[in-house]
Simulated assay, not measured.
Amino acid sequence: MTWRGPLLDEEQRDLAAMLDAFTADRAVELDDSPEMVAALVQELAGLGVWTLGTPESAGGGGAGSLTTAVAWERLGRRWPALGWASAQAHAAVDVLAGDRRFADLVGRIHAGEAGVAVVDAACVHVRLAWHGDSLSGSVDRVDAAARSPHLLILTGAREALLVPPTATKATPLRRTGLGGALTSALDVTAGADAVHHVTGVDVTAARCRLHLGAAAVASGIAGAAADDAAGYTAVRRQFGKALRDIPAVRMSLFGQAARAAAALAAATSVPYDHLAAVAIARECCETAIEVAAAALQSHGGYGYLAEYQAERRLRDAISLRAAADTSGPAGAAARVLTGASPVTALPKEER
């Protein structure tokens, strides 16, 4: 097991080893087969991993932030789409678990039987508005590893909206990577009776949970890419010696490992506010792309062959950045920078 982050205790090392064995035993390349994705999600739920870091009082595993990051990082190495979907499941439980109306849904999330796409109302790809008593519009992209997910919209610091799958229409989208994410655009048409308002919850903490989840998954992609490059250059020979013995290659490998370690250190830190969490997610996603691109170059022309995984790592890193919406200022972080008032609800037309 390669781990370039903080020192782990025995339980955390066992978790990483268990997930490594789990993914190795199921050596499948995820595609958008709903049956395959659902089966893996439910297996992870059965192992207690899917909502590992949610509170025990909410039916979760009660794991700390580092243990949860270990799980997401290991999933990021093999199935980053599932790592990202697990982060969304954690955020959904954080928001919904205290409301008795959602007890059944929360139980199904823990069991891996219900997908939830969690989005921020302030993000540019969320185009929703109230028209009278109806909420309508679209969400340009969701990556919930579920064909018809619930839609949880984070609208303010302590408010959110939950829209059921019956009020949305999903259109599958093509993407660069992130196989198994079942990426789609959602058209929303929901009457007032279908939209559930959730108030009095720490939505800012749920946003931080999402960003740190994306960061941990990205660090897993980076770590796996660096390991792949080191392994390939150790056995590939050129000019009578291993590629890694060539100084320029060796320096590239060092840079890849160093950047992957820095990303993991950031992903396992405890940010002091939402802006810091956004910054961590952004940097980790950018680092994953940079490391994956360098690792592909370390493979030479063979890096573009699917059997070597290098090209998939790069595609996954690019798609994760888009899915986690780190390429531009996230809504709440932008409000921190500008000093604007927080959004407390989606805009409503006057009645």
Score class of each variant (00 low, 15 high):
L82V: 05
E11C: 01
E56K: 13
A146G: 11
P55E: 11
A71T: 04
S57K: 10
V116N: 09
A103I: 09
G76H: 07
S57Y: 06
L135D: 11
V126L: 13
S57D: 12
R78M: 09
P80G: 09
W72G: 05
L40D: 01
R127D: 15
E29L: 05
G62P: 11
F102S: 02
A114E: 10
G83D: 09
G59T: 02
T68N: 06
D14T: 05
L82N: 05
A24N: 03
E56G: 05
V37T: 05
D104H: 14
R74W: 04
P6Y: 09
D104P: 07
A103Q: 13
D9K: 04
T51N: 03
G5C: 05
L40G: 01
V28F: 01
A21P: 02
G132F: 12
P6W: 08
L8E: 10
G137R: 13
A91T: 08
A21S: 09
E113V: 00
A63N: 07
L19R: 01
V28A: 03
L128Y: 13
E43R: 02
G137D: 15
L128T: 11
W50Q: 04
R78C: 11
R74E: 12
H125E: 15
L66V: 15
D31Y: 11
A71C: 08
A38D: 12
A39N: 06
S136F: 08
W79H: 09
L52I: 00
H131S: 14
V95K: 02
R100V: 01
D99K: 02
G132E: 13
T67G: 04
A97L: 09
A24Y: 02
G60P: 03
T67P: 02
M36E: 12
D25Q: 06
D25W: 01
V126T: 15
D31K: 10
G132V: 10
A146Y: 12
A81M: 09
A24G: 01
S136E: 15
T68V: 03
V106E: 09
G46C: 00
A87P: 14
G64D: 13
